[in-house]
Amino acid sequence: MNTPEIKLERVSMLYQTDSTEVLAVQDVTLDIKQGEFVSLLGPSGCGKTTLLRIMADLIQPTNGEIKVAGESARAARLAQKYGIVFQSPVLYDWRKVKQNINLPLEMIGMKKSEREDRVNALLELVGLEDFKEKYPWQLSGGMQQRVAIARALAMEPEILLMDEPFSALDEFTREHLNEELLSIWSKVGSTVVFVTHSISESIFLSDRVFVLSPHPGRLSSVVDITLPRPRTQEMRNSPEFFQLIADIRDSFEGV
């Protein structure tokens, strides 16, 4: 498409506290194509989550403009174009897995038979068919995040926004879920914006990586990830992968 799915133009965010002002994001301009998987990469406190919240219309930028499919972020939110996955799964412990996934469908009044079909399809998509009657506290952290991803996909969003969803998991689980996420993305085709502070994770997942500078967050560079798809764990040990890591590290040093 000629029109970007998401377009930010000179976006800045200034937070006012009791004693001072904090410039979290400064003059960020970027665009994201429909169906693209991109990562927002940078150190803690560089404004990655702030940018994601601006895209989601959860906060309003101090300056600049954001368009989603040519409309305002507010219009996109009201049209339910977003699915959001947070760092914590934010599941309801008293609701079973299938009931957690079902929740947004209940809220819009979808017919029970349609809800059941949608939830069953999502359970299959994230590989949790055998755990639908379990409660969140009976699942591992990685399985809880898969439930959160399924719930975010329940409304069939055009855009999936993910705020460091695997950062609390051990490295082995995290790498496994990276593969599962790419498998899910290949089937649903949503545009994905993924926040991370892991260079290797951003490379493994993304088509492009938007590198943000340390506070205040500015767009330092955009790195095209040329690794072929589907991605495999073996690629993490390839010369191309290590070169991309070096390229991104160099972009930080150039800030």
Rank of each mutant, 00 (worst) to 15 (best):
R229P: 03
L244C: 04
N63G: 10
H176R: 15
V90P: 10
L123G: 03
K111F: 11
A79L: 07
Q34V: 02
I245Y: 07
S186V: 02
T49P: 03
I159A: 04
I54F: 06
L219H: 08
E114D: 10
Y92M: 13
L128C: 00
P61V: 06
T3Q: 13
T17S: 14
E9D: 14
R249Y: 12
V223W: 00
G70W: 12
T50F: 10
V195Y: 08
T3G: 01
S88R: 14
K67E: 10
A69W: 12
P43E: 11
E21S: 15
S220T: 10
L103F: 15
Q243S: 10
S238M: 12
E116L: 11
F252N: 01
V147A: 03
I6E: 01
D57I: 02
I32A: 05
R151Y: 11
L182M: 10
S72A: 10
Q16T: 15
L125D: 04
I32G: 04
P136H: 13
G254R: 15
L91S: 09
Q233T: 05
D247F: 09
E114P: 08
D250V: 08
V68M: 04
L205A: 00
Q60I: 03
Q233Y: 13
D130H: 15
A75L: 06
Q34F: 08
E164C: 09
E124C: 02
L182S: 07
V223N: 02
E129W: 08
A148T: 01
I149S: 12
A73H: 05
E71M: 08
